[in-house]
């Protein structure tokens, strides 16, 4: 393989990793931007999405599309339940942030153990549908694996959809206003508790989508949640908490640094993303897009 082919392949691999990471980071960023909740359980929601997709595709209906839809719906419902039954009890407490971290970390431990009990600790994966196998030639001897290209397109569509909803719809105006001044939003008539549940559901659904799309691309196991949440936090720190564009740029950057970094120094793929995070924190503590609207 020529050098430029190798570099191209690593960059595409990185963009693919970053695209899946974006779906998790976008939900994390949305939830933080509107609710001020740092949801450590977001990674296990991603893991649940992956497992639901595998179970539905392999054991129930055999359709990849239905598997993805089921993952999104199930994780959205789980997320809605977590917020409305547990997390909302913490809003306004004196030690709210600490309580959030303890509560959502408890969810991580409980859900991981339940998944390990039900599915075992071995890795699982999903075969992508026939139409998404193979490669797409790009000319000049370069090509992109079809499934990786599909995930990248999905991430771009999700980003465009989120930005369009925020920018051009009433729901978007409500979300943006509440994220900047929740009390004033309530004074104008926004039902903030209902909005919070809705935002948490959407954030969780994005994690479910990311997990379902990850199932054919990586080994799914009960510790997937822990590894993805650390990367997602790195992404939102680099991109800027609360910014979708920041989450997208941060995720793609982390994906490329991971893929290319592991080629440069074998086994050191994690080194470069954390180095990037440190550099961003030192030079621009609010992140690349920090302070921008949700």
């Amino acid at each position: 393989m020529s050098t430029h082919s190798l570099v191209f392949e690593q960059i595409i691999t990185g963009i693919g990793i970053g695209s899946r990471l974006f779906l998790v980071a976008a939900g994390l960023s949305l939830i933080f931007g509107v609710l001020d909740v740092l949801n450590f359980a977001h990674g296990v929601l991603y893991m649940i999405g992956a497992y639901v997709a595998i179970v539905v595709v392999e054991s129930v209906v055999g359709s990849f599309v239905l598997g993805v839809v089921a993952a999104v719906v199930v994780v959205a419902v789980v997320g809605g339940a977590l917020e409305s039954v547990f997390i909302r009890r913490l809003y306004g407490r004196d030690e709210e942030i600490l309580d959030q971290l303890l509560l959502t970390f408890a969810f991580v431990l409980i859900i991981e153990d339940v998944v390990r009990f039900v599915f075992g600790s071995g890795g699982k994966s999903l075969t992508p549908p026939e139409v998404l196998t193979g490669t797409v030639p790009l000319g000049a001897g370069l090509s992109v694996p079809t499934y990786r290209g599909f995930v990248i397109v999905m991430a771009v569509l999700v980003l465009a959809g989120l930005l369009a909803v925020l920018r051009y719809t009433n729901v978007g105006r409500i979300v943006r206003s509440t994220s900047s001044d929740r009390e004033m939003a309530r004074l104008l008539g926004v039902n903030v508790p209902r909005l919070y549940t809705g935002v948490f559901v959407v954030g969780a659904a994005l994690a479910g989508l990311g997990g379902a799309l990850a199932a054919p691309a990586e080994s799914i196991s009960s510790n997937l949640g822990n590894s993805i949440i650390i990367d997602a936090f790195v992404v939102v720190v680099i991109g800027g908490l609360g910014s979708f564009v920041g989450a997208f740029v941060g995720a793609i950057l982390i994906g490329i640094l991971t893929a290319v970094g592991s080629e440069v120094i074998a086994g050191a793929g994690e080194f470069f993303p954390f180095l990037a995070m440190i550099v961003v924190l030192v030079l621009r503590p609010t992140g690349l897009f920090g302070g921008a609207e949700v």
Partner: peptide, 12 residues
């Protein structure tokens, strides 16, 4: 709302 335009503040 600082990140909404004048029109968006009124529309909201």
């Amino acid at each position: 709302f600082p990140t909404l335009t004048v029109l968006e503040n009124v529309q909201l």
